[in-house]
Simulated assay, not measured.
Amino acid sequence: MSEFFDWISSHLWAGWGILALLLAAAELLTLDLTLLMLASGALMGGVTALIFPSMVWLQALVALATAVATLFLLRPTLLERVRRAPGYRSSLDNLIGSQTTNTVPITGSSGEVTIQGETWPARSYDPSMTIEAGESIEVLGLDGIVLLVYPTNRPLGR
């Protein structure tokens, strides 16, 4: 194992490349684009290591500058484009249409429901309606992160 580290220390470009690949692979688990921006920094550190192999401080500086620049300049733009793409649905949007049984009363201004093991703030879709505990409900919409719910056993009045 020490031979591997000796080789990496004499070929820092490969170490930067391995780090970039590991960060890019880890990005596939998060899909948040943060680790991908860090991977771009590591990649640029590797390119700098190819040009200036003995200047480790410069490699680290270029890697850090690239990672910070992409995190704060490129990532927000990319996230906005992804979120505006046709067919994109956030995890909150995926809750619309979910059905569950509420455990606490839900009014037009307050309440909570548990869907797929997660507790969400909720309120009645019809502000004048109170949904008693134990009723089967369906998520009809969203108001921020508050779920708008309606009982499945009652006809929709509006």
Score class of each variant (00 low, 15 high):
87 G>M: 07
106 I>Y: 00
61 L>C: 06
149 V>Y: 00
75 R>C: 03
100 T>M: 11
104 V>P: 14
78 L>W: 13
129 M>K: 02
138 E>D: 03
64 L>S: 05
53 P>W: 01
93 D>K: 04
111 G>Y: 01
68 V>E: 00
116 Q>G: 07
69 A>G: 15
137 I>V: 07
84 R>I: 10
114 T>F: 11
72 F>T: 10
82 V>P: 11
103 T>E: 14
100 T>V: 04
71 L>N: 14
60 A>P: 03
101 T>A: 12
85 A>P: 08
131 I>L: 00
87 G>D: 13
107 T>R: 09
138 E>I: 13
118 E>G: 08
63 A>C: 14
130 T>C: 02
146 V>N: 11
72 F>N: 05
116 Q>R: 14
128 S>N: 12
68 V>H: 09
77 T>D: 04
115 I>H: 07
139 V>S: 01
145 I>W: 07
145 I>V: 13
59 Q>R: 05
140 L>C: 06
86 P>K: 14
141 G>L: 02
127 P>C: 04
100 T>N: 00
53 P>Y: 01
64 L>H: 02
148 L>C: 11
84 R>S: 12
61 L>N: 02
73 L>E: 10
100 T>F: 05
103 T>K: 13
83 R>I: 05
52 F>Y: 09
82 V>K: 15
140 L>Y: 08
65 A>W: 09
120 W>C: 15
62 V>I: 01
112 E>V: 05
145 I>C: 07
86 P>Q: 14
128 S>G: 04
134 G>Q: 04
71 L>G: 07
51 I>D: 00
60 A>H: 02
107 T>V: 05
106 I>A: 04
54 S>P: 03
79 L>M: 09
90 S>I: 13
104 V>M: 13
134 G>H: 09
106 I>M: 00
127 P>E: 01
108 G>M: 04
82 V>N: 11
149 V>S: 06
94 N>E: 14
53 P>A: 01
138 E>R: 09
133 A>Y: 02
55 M>C: 12
141 G>M: 03
90 S>M: 07
101 T>Y: 10
131 I>Y: 00
148 L>Q: 14
80 E>D: 13
111 G>T: 03
79 L>H: 08
86 P>L: 10
133 A>T: 02
73 L>N: 06
64 L>W: 10
135 E>G: 08
67 A>D: 13
88 Y>Q: 13
95 L>K: 12
137 I>P: 03
78 L>D: 11
124 S>T: 03
115 I>N: 11
91 S>E: 15
141 G>P: 09
129 M>H: 01
74 L>N: 15
50 L>M: 03
71 L>S: 12
119 T>C: 12
64 L>M: 15
94 N>W: 12
97 G>I: 05
116 Q>T: 09
142 L>N: 05
73 L>R: 02
66 T>P: 04
126 D>M: 06
58 L>M: 07
101 T>F: 07
54 S>M: 06
55 M>A: 15
100 T>Y: 06
128 S>P: 03
90 S>W: 08
106 I>G: 06
